[in-house]
Design a protein around this nucleic acid. Structure first.
Length: 630
DNA sequence: CTAGGGTTAG
């Protein structure tokens, strides 16, 4: 359906950009920058061949004619059996070829059983056989067996080569044992007869990146430049990707240009890393520039490239552009996958266009095997965020009918929304249901339900639930305690809240800004403004800087307790730190100004600004609660 | 015949 809609729109895409409505198609006259962007790409993609030219694969196939192409393990078993029955036995090389192909299919346990058959049938093995074996053990996270396979080298009088050592290094890295990986590498360098090559270096660079040690990875790259083994595309791409993941996109771009200066051409993986990096920072214009750049170099974007763009446009609220990207994909015969459609669906959910989200979901259903737990969760989340609880619950039932098992995210989403709309009973029923279905609640689930109970003034039930959680040996974190402290404050049990707050350090927990602010608010509600002010100073001293929300809370607290003398100082402090009063606080301050109780010079310093959260202020203000980000 | 980079979504 969606595809049909997309196809009907493509004819007109050169002049405008379209979006869908429930009635069909509407012309979307968005701002010119976006139109220029989209149109450039259409022009651009129309000028490209619709599919990359197929390489001369026939040649390769001809070369391999004597070797059967292994496409699945069953076939490999057959071929292998036949080979074992041949007399004389085929050469080790032929067995290695089969083994290698099975390993490429990632059927590592099959590799091991083939190897064992080879041993029984007395097929000789060589360095290559053992290296494939070691590699398979590595991928099965069985380094112990890898190392005992290494022992076979000595038994058979074989010498491990650079492939063997690189495989071992990779094996240690897969188990996060970077030190041991580096140890092998150092021994290679010291040994002299088997020096690391560019792949060995690349493997270790990856290892450092995995540990988040970019500087070690970069150091290794610099070391390569000094020696005979120069860094290649993979080494650069690994570092570029790692920098992008750490949002150090500028550094990544520097390595990108450095690489190109050396005549190393980037590929689709390099560009995907960069596009992903800039997109995570919301810089879609930079992403568009990179996309432009790669296509101009005849590097073809793949599903991943496009999916990232769809996701970013959706998150930036640019659904029309996201649709445009999907059109481009279809135009270029790149089939959007579940990730692409899921991003688009999430984008519609974000805009509250739930009927369009539902249409994408139906389209995914019609394609078969595209809908999974994640896509259901996305739509359920969309329904929940727009308080369409009936639809959300219906989808929960539907997914079970389709044989999809709702996971902890499904239940957490639903429990949270039930709490937010005040359906505590439903939330509790879902909480039991998930346990019956074998999805054990985690700390986050408890946090969600505890928060719901506390916000709905059911503190005693909350405390009961908290004890249940402790009984299950789940470690309560600061988020849980903050919720309970807030719950106690809402119940106006300020002394208990304070006690719990003071017990945090003995529990090995550090209060965060949220915890402090909630406690300060509680103290103000209880009229204990002196303690509130002391806590404001204390948090700063303990290295937890108050934020705008903290100041708003304490200022309101002081005003409500008629302590207007201190308020002037607090407002000054807040403004000096670059925070401003929210609408509620401003109202109270203006009120004071009218009564001539604060310095009028402060007025222009205050701007209206919406804060994420409003705390209960002697009265409960449920409607102003925002989704909690525990 | 054997070893290294990205796979995006809730």
């Amino acid at each position: 359906m969606l595809k049909m809609m997309i196809r009907t729109t493509t004819a007109a895409t050169s002049s405008s950009c379209y979006c869908w409505s429930s009635r069909g198609m509407n012309c979307l006259h968005s701002n010119s920058t976006i139109l220029v962007f989209v149109n450039n790409y259409f022009a651009f993609f129309h000028s490209q061949p619709s599919k990359p030219i197929k390489s001369t694969r026939t040649q390769l196939e001809q070369q391999k004619r004597d070797l059967p192409k292994i496409t699945n393990v069953e076939y490999a078993f057959n071929v292998f059996d036949k080979m074992l029955q041949m007399r004389p036995l085929p050469s080790v090389v032929r067995f290695n070829k089969i083994l290698g192909q099975v390993a490429k299919l990632k059927h590592h346990s099959a590799v091991i059983s083939f190897y064992n058959q080879m041993v029984v049938s007395r097929v000789g093995h060589d360095v290559c056989t053992l290296t494939i074996l070691i590699n398979s053990y590595c991928h099965l996270n069985q380094m112990g067996f890898s190392l005992s396979a290494l022992g076979k080298f000595f038994k058979l009088g074989l010498e491990p080569n650079v492939f063997t050592f690189t495989t071992l290094i990779n094996g240690f890295l897969l188990e996060n044992r970077v030190a041991e990986a580096a140890g092998i590498f150092n021994k290679m360098i010291a040994g002299g007869n088997c020096q690391p090559n560019v792949v060995t270096y690349g493997t270790l660079v990856k290892g450092f990146c995995m540990k988040g040690n970019n500087s070690a990875a970069i150091q290794l790259l610099r070391k390569m430049e000094e020696g005979a083994c120069k860094p290649d595309l993979v080494v650069y791409s690994t570092i570029i990707d790692s920098l992008c993941k750490d949002t150090l996109v500028d550094d990544a771009l520097n390595f990108f240009s450095e690489m190109m200066c050396k005549g190393i051409a980037p590929d689709v993986i390099t560009y995907n890393s960069l596009i992903n990096g800039v997109c995570k920072l919301g810089e879609w214009k930079e992403a568009a520039r990179l996309l432009n750049d790669m296509v101009s170099k005849n590097i073809f974007p793949d599903v991943c490239t496009f999916s990232v763009l769809v996701d970013t446009f959706c998150k930036e609220g640019m659904a029309g552009e996201a649709e445009g990207v999907v059109e481009m994909m279809i135009e270029r015969d790149i089939e959007p996958d579940r990730v692409t459609y899921n991003s688009l669906m999430d984008g519609y959910c974000l805009r509250g266009e739930m009927s369009k989200a539902g249409k994408v979901f139906k389209l995914m259903l019609s394609k078969g095997s595209m809908v999974d737990v994640v896509s259901c969760n996305t739509l359920i989340n969309g329904y929940c965020k727009h308080k369409m609880m009936d639809e959300a619950m219906m989808l929960l039932r539907e997914m079970t009918c389709k044989g999809l098992v709702p996971d902890i995210v499904t239940y957490n989403t639903l429990v949270d929304s039930c709490c937010k709309v005040g359906k505590l009973g439903d939330a509790q029923r879902l909480f039991s249901e998930m346990q019956v279905c074998g999805q054990l609640p985690d700390v986050q689930t408890y946090a969600i339900l505890l928060d719901g109970l506390c916000k709905n003034q059911q503190i005693s039930t909350a405390i009961q639930l908290f004890k249940e959680m402790e009984g299950k040996k789940l470690d309560a974190d600061i988020v849980i305690y903050t919720i309970l402290i807030e719950g106690l404050c809402i119940a106006e049990k300020i002394e208990s809240a304070k006690e719990l707050f003071c017990s945090l350090s003995s529990r090995g927990l550090q209060p965060n800004v949220r915890t402090y602010t909630i406690m300060i608010n509680g103290l103000c509600i209880g009229g204990r403004t002196i303690e509130a002010e002391k806590l404001l100073i204390e948090m700063e001293e303990k290295g937890c800087s108050p934020n705008g929300w903290t100041y708003n809370v304490i200022i309101r607290g002081f005003i409500n307790n008629n302590e207007t003398v201190t308020v002037t100082g607090l407002i000054q402090q807040m403004v000096e730190k670059g925070f401003s009063a929210d609408a509620w606080t401003t109202e109270l301050i203006v009120d004071l100004l009218v009564k001539d109780k604060v310095d009028p010079a402060l007025l222009p310093l205050m701007q209206k600004e919406n804060y994420e959260l409003n705390l209960p202020q002697l009265k409960l203000n449920r409607s102003s609660d925002h989704p909690n980000k525990h």
